[in-house]
């Protein structure tokens, strides 16, 4: 399998001007996504995950940095000005199943839009293709003629996934796509996502705050806090050797269901405090206000990149 870099983000910034001041939602983020992998972007709400995804989609332009897609496309251009093939190749599945499907359109119309826009199939074959896509995500063809309100939350997300798959994309952003679901529907959606990824060689950017989900479908993890990335590691290693105190705090907060799971959680760190406002982020390491190990230097200077091993990087003064 060719592991070329499909998406390369460097020093990405996005600021919002609000009544309270400038929100530094994404503040110098760099990462690469390899073809065929699932890269998880994890952090508390307000850390800038959705903003990162939306900038990649082109919903608003970045205020700095570069996003290069497949080595050829510059993604700083807004969605509307992007060439059609980009609109086909990059897809998104949103968080809230209640608002991600138009309530007045039949499932068939929802899924056939990208098929027709991108001429994936002949007009006369649309029904068949929609049925095939529904079947593929685990829904029977009779769902074609339902309205969104006639579906459960998990079914709606599956339809949203079918819609994203319709134009044969390479890259899908999953923004908390299972967060609003019950575990039983979440399981179905997760299994479907894994299956189609393997069969279609898709690349996912998985935005989530649920480390259980991360463990199950991602190959690499990035931890984001207040607009910056503080740790990245392959999933296996991430759960074995979480380094950043913030990562440890996230892990130790998970209510587990078994003894084995409990053993994964780091000891000696407890969740304290709340994420501060992104308008006036703390100086130095932004996590220092909640960090039990904070030193003088943490308040003063941005932590350096510490390379733990090839693929594991942590940004923390503790390991200097």
């Amino acid at each position: 399998m060719s592991n070329y870099t499909i998406l390369s983000v460097s020093d990405l910034r996005k600021y919002f001007t609000t009544a309270e001041g400038v929100v530094r939602a994404v503040d110098g983020v760099s990462f690469n996504v390899k073809h065929g992998e699932t890269l998880a972007l994890v952090g508390e709400s307000g850390s800038g995950k959705t903003t990162t995804g939306h900038v990649i989609m082109g919903f608003y332009p970045p205020d700095g940095g570069k996003i290069i897609y497949k080595g050829a496309y510059e993604l700083s251009i807004p969605m509307k000005k992007r060439p059609l093939e980009l609109k086909r190749d990059i897809q998104i599945v949103f968080q809230d199943p209640g608002t991600s499907l138009n309530p007045k359109r039949l499932v068939k119309d929802i899924i056939s839009l990208p098929l027709l826009v991108h001429r994936i199939v002949d007009k006369r074959r649309v029904y068949e293709k929609v049925a095939e896509l529904l079947e593929y995500v685990g829904l029977s063809e009779e769902y074609m003629f339902r309205y969104p309100h006639e579906l459960g939350g998990g079914e709606k997300q599956l339809v949203a996934i079918a819609r994203a798959l319709a134009p044969n994309p390479s890259f899908i952003i999953l923004d908390e796509s299972t967060s609003a679901l019950d575990v039983s529907s979440q399981a179905k959606v997760l299994n479907t996502l894994v299956k189609i990824q393997n069969e279609l060689k898709l690349t996912y950017l998985l935005i989530t705050h649920d480390l259980g989900v991360v463990r199950n479908i991602s190959q690499r993890v990035m931890i984001m806090y207040l607009g910056k990335i503080y740790e990245e590691a392959p999933t296996e290693e991430f759960f074995k050797l979480p380094m950043h105190p913030y990562t440890q705090m996230l892990l130790s907060s998970i209510p587990t269901l078994s003894e084995e799971d409990e053993k994964i959680k780091p000891r000696g760190i407890e969740s304290v405090g709340e994420i501060p406002s992104a308008v006036k982020p703390p100086s130095g390491c932004r996590f220092h206000t909640r960090c039990p190990f904070a030193k003088q230097i943490c308040m003063e200077k941005d932590p350096p990149d510490i390379i733990v091993n090839n693929n594991h990087i942590v940004r923390c003064w503790l390991y200097e």
Binding site: L151, G152, G154, E155, V183, S184, S185, Q186, A187, K188, V189, L190, N191, D210, L211, G212, V213, R215, N216, F239, L251, I254, T256, L257, S258, E260, D261, K263, I264, K265
Partner: peptide, 23 residues
């Protein structure tokens, strides 16, 4: 059983198949 097996674990990969249909 289905509810419990659907819950993602930290110590292992793979979740149950969920529950078909809806309430």
């Amino acid at each position: 059983q289905l509810l419990i097996s659907s819950t993602p674990r930290l110590s292992s990969v793979g979740v149950g198949e969920g529950i078909k249909g809806k309430i």
